[in-house]
């Protein structure tokens, strides 16, 4: 199952909540303000690292670009909208709001 998260982790516990319910192997796609979670060197670095032990993490490149985020945490994969669609092809979707 693909989980999408669109909230900044600084103001909202949606990413934390999503991770609690995601099964090992489920991909996590960060979109909109959700991409702030993977900016390199922020205080969620260790959390992202821990998530990556069990779940692949993706971030939507157009949302990173829009927010001026060029350096992202190691192990996180960037995708464009086409990549978003490909993930949806492979998985049912749980859009955390």
């Amino acid at each position: 199952m693909l989980h999408t998260v669109n909230k900044s982790p600084f103001g909202n516990d949606t990413l934390e909540t999503c991770i609690r319910f995601a099964l090992p192997g489920d991909p996590i796609l960060l979109i909109e303000d959700g991409v702030y979670a993977v900016q390199a060197g922020n205080r969620f670095a260790s959390m992202i690292e821990a998530i990556l032990q069990k779940n692949p993490v993706f971030a939507l490149q157009p949302d990173l670009n829009a927010r001026g985020i060029s350096e992202i945490a190691n192990g996180v994969t960037t995708v464009d909208y086409e990549g978003f669609v490909k993930l949806v092809e492979q998985h049912q979707v749980n859009s955390w709001l």
């Binding site: 199952m1 609690r20 319910f21 049912q92 979707v93 859009s95 955390w96 709001l97």
Partner: peptide
């Protein structure tokens, strides 16, 4: 959360409100 996560996996559709 593990049990709810497993239930989520079984669904055809999940709607978050």
């Amino acid at each position: 959360s593990e049990n709810i996560g497993s239930l989520m996996k079984e669904q055809d559709v999940i709607i978050q409100h």
